[in-house]
Nucleic acid binder design. Structure first.
Lengths: 213, 213, 213, 213
DNA sequence: CGATAACCGAGACGGTACGTCGAGTCTTGGC
DNA sequence: GCCAAGACTCGACGTACCGTCTCGGTTATCG
C-alpha cells in the first residue's frame, strides 16, 4: 500500500500544483528511522520524546509537528509503515492458508524490530480515539476482512462448519494467537508448529472424540 | 489477595506503635476515588497526572508521594482494588464452569466502572512497564492459573482432550473472549449466550462432522 | 543624503546591465508601506517580525532578505525614508532660525506617521544596537551638525555668547525639546509658542535680572 | 523604598497568613544578580533570554515566570532596584542644589553597572505601555517632582525667575543632562564641572550681556 | 498535660518536555 | 534572475508536570 502523504490515509494525488518548497522526503525518512532506532534500542514509549526524535533524526521539531499533530499520530504512521502486508494467497487449501495466516501473525509477533509496534498499537492507541480509529481502519480492519474472507472460503470448501457465525469463527481462530502476541512473552511464540497445532485443535474440537467405529 | 497496606504487597503489620499522627484513611480513599472518577470520566492514562489526582481528591501532592513512590505504583493499587475476584467454583460440571468463567470475563468487559482497567491493561499500560509487570503478576497470572486449574479439571473429567498442551488449551479457550473484551466495542459482548456458544463451538470443533453413522 | 540602493549607504550604480529579471520596485514600496502601516498601527519594534511584514506586504520573505541582510538594516532604511529634511535656512536672523529649528522638532514630534520613529529611536532601538548606531550616523549626527552650524552662526552674529562650549550650547538648546518629544506625552508639545518661549528663556537666562538701571 | 513583593509597587503587608511554601528570597536575589551580571558582561537586551537568565541564576524558568509575566516586567524590577535614590537635600543654596542634582544625573549616567538600565528604561519601556507607566510612576515621576520642588524653592529664593512656567523651567534644566545621558556616549559626561557649567550658563543666559555699567 | 513527631493542605523549588513562533536559508514552479 | 510560497534547522518562548522541599497547622502517642 503506497501512501504519498503519510498523514492522510486517502491521499489525493493533488493535481493542482502545490506551491512552495515541497516537504523533504529525506527528513521524513530520517524521522521514521530515528523512531525505529530509538525503540529498537530500548527506549520505552513514555521515554520517547519529540525532542529526542528530532535530535536523533537531525531535524527541527517543527518539521515533525508540520507532519503530525502529536506523538501519537506520529506513532500511528510509524506503526503503519512497519506493518508488513499479509502473505498473498498461496492458492493452497483453505486449511493450509488458515495455518499460514496464523503463522504469519506468530512471526510478526516475534519480529524484534516490529514487536514494540504491536504492543504500542494495542496500547497508546486507546488514548486517542480518533487515532485509534485511523489505525483500526488502516491496519486492523483490512486484516480482519482478509481473515474473514479466508474463513468464508474455508466454509465454502467445507473445511469449516457452515452453521456458525462468521465473526465468532474469526475470533475463535484469531483470538488465541493475537492474545499471545500482545500479552505474553516471546517464548510463547517460538514453537514453529504453533499455528498448525492451533488449527488442528480448533478444527478437530477440544472435546475428546469417541473412538471411530 | 491481601492488600492491607496499599504501598506494597508485603505489608508490615507494624506491631510497634508508631508515633505521630497516623495517616488519614479518608485521604487514601479520596485518592482512590479521584483516580477512578477521572478514568471513568474519559481521562486517558497519559492524561492522568499526579497533580490532577491531588486536586480532584482535595489532597496535597506529598500525601500521594508519601504512600506510593510514583504514578505506576499508585495505579497498580487502584487496579488491584477494582479487580473483583473470579467467581467461586459452583461445583457444577467442568463444562458449565468453563462457560461460567468465560461469561464472567464477558460481563467484566461490559462493567462500566472497571472497563477502563481492562482496556488500559492491554493498551496504555505498555507505556508504563512497571505498572504493566505488576498488573501482570497480581492480576493476570493468578487468573490464568485459576483458569488452567479449571482446564486441568476439565481434562480429568474427560470434557477436554488430554492430548493437547495445557497452555494451548487455555489460550484457545480464553483468547477469543479476551480479544473481544479488549479490542472490539461493547456491542460485541452483549449476547448473553456468547460464552456458551464459544464453548460449544470449541469443544465440538470448527470442522464439519461427518454425518453420524 | 543619497539612498539610491536601499541596502547600503554606499550604493553601486551598477552600470553593467545585470541579467535576469530586475528587482520589483513595487515589492520594495509594498515592504516600506507595510512596515510604516504596522508601526503606525501600534505594533512595537519587538513585535515587528519579518514574517509579519512579508505577509502584510504580500511579499515573500526572500524578497526582503534579498534586499536587506536583517531586520535592523531594513528598519534603518524605513526610518531614513521617513525622516523629512530639516527646513532650509530662511535667511532670517539667527535667533529666528533657532526658534524655527526647535519648532520644527516640536512639530516633528507631533506628526502622527513618524512619531513612532522618534520614540523608537530613543527607546526600543537600544535593543537593536546596529539599528541604533546606523540611525545615529545617518539621522542624528547630520542634524546635530546642522544645528551646531546654526549655533555657530548665532555666535558669529552675537546672538549667543562666544565664551561657551559649542557642544554645551547645542545641548542646552536642543535637549529640552528632544526630551519633551521623546519622554512626555503629545500634549506637552501642542503649544505653538513653545519654541519661542524656550529660546527667549534660554537667551535671557533663567535667573532674575536686576532691574535695568 | 522597600518593596516586599517585587511585582507590585504598592505591596500590601498581607496580614492574612498565606499558605504553602513561601517564595525563596535567595532565588529572587540570584535572578537579579544574574541579569545584572549578564548585562554588565556585554549581553544586549535582545540577546538577554529568560532561559539564559534562569541558567545563569541556577533557577528554573518557572521560578521567573512565577514572579514576572514576561521579560519586560522583570527588567522593570531590575531597573527599579538599581536606581539609587537621589541625594538628600544638603541644605545648601538652591543654586548649589541644582548643580548637585544635575551632577547626580551625570554620575548616574556614567555608572557602569547601571548605565544599561538607563538606556533600557528609555528604550524597551515604550514597547509595553503599562510597564512604561509603572516605571514612570515609580522612578520618573518622583524624581521629576523632587526636581520641580527644588525649582520651586529656587524661585522662592530668587535664584530662578518667577515669570516662567514651572514645567518649562524643569525641562530647560533637566533636558540637556538627560539628553546627554541617554543619547550620547560616556565621553560626553566625563567633565566633572559639566553640571556647574550648565547651571551657570542657563542662569546667566545664553545671550551675551552688555557690559555692566 | 505538654512535648514530640508524623501527618495534613498548599504551593514554591529545579528540571524536562511540550507545542508554537520567528529568524534566516533553501527549494520548488512560474514569470 | 527575480517572484510568492512554503519547507528547512535552530533556538527561545511560555506552560504543564515531575518528584522534592518548605511553610503553618493538626492530631496522635509518649513522658
Amino acid at each position: 500500500m503506497k501512501t504519498d502523504t503519510p498523514a492522510a490515509g486517502a491521499g489525493q494525488p493533488c493535481a493542482t500544483a502545490r506551491r512552495g518548497r515541497p516537504r523533504s522526503e529525506a527528513a521524513e525518512q530520517a524521522i521514521f528511522t530515528a523512531v525505529e532506532d530509538l525503540m529498537a534500542g530500548g527506549t520505552t514509549l513514555s521515554e520517547l520524546t519529540i525532542e529526542g526524535i528530532a535530535t536523533a533524526a537531525g531535524v527541527g521539531k517543527a518539521t515533525i509537528y508540520r507532519r503530525w499533530p502529536n506523538k501519537e499520530a506520529l506513532l500511528v504512521d510509524v506503526v503503519s509503515r512497519l506493518e508488513v502486508p499479509m502473505p498473498e494467497s498461496t492458492g493452497g487449501s483453505a486449511r493450509d492458508e488458515l495455518v499460514a495466516m496464523i503463522d504469519y501473525m506468530r512471526r510478526r509477533g516475534l519480529a524484534k524490530r516490529t514487536r514494540w509496534v504491536l504492543k504500542a498499537a494495542f496500547g497508546q492507541m486507546h488514548s486517542l480515539p480518533e487515532l485509534h480509529a485511523a489505525y483500526h481502519d488502516r491496519v486492523v480492519k483490512p486484516r480482519r476482512e482478509a481473515a474473514l474472507d479466508l474463513v468464508q472460503r474455508a466454509i465454502d470448501e467445507g473445511v469449516l462448519r457452515a452453521d456458525l457465525d462468521l465473526d465468532l469463527l474469526g475470533d475463535l481462530l484469531l483470538g488465541p494467537i493475537l492474545y499471545r502476541s500482545i500479552l505474553w512473552e516471546d517464548s510463547d511464540l517460538e514453537d514453529p508448529e504453533l499455528a498448525r497445532k492451533m488449527v488442528d485443535a480448533l478444527l478437530d474440537g477440544l472435546a475428546p472424540r469417541p473412538a471411530a467405529p
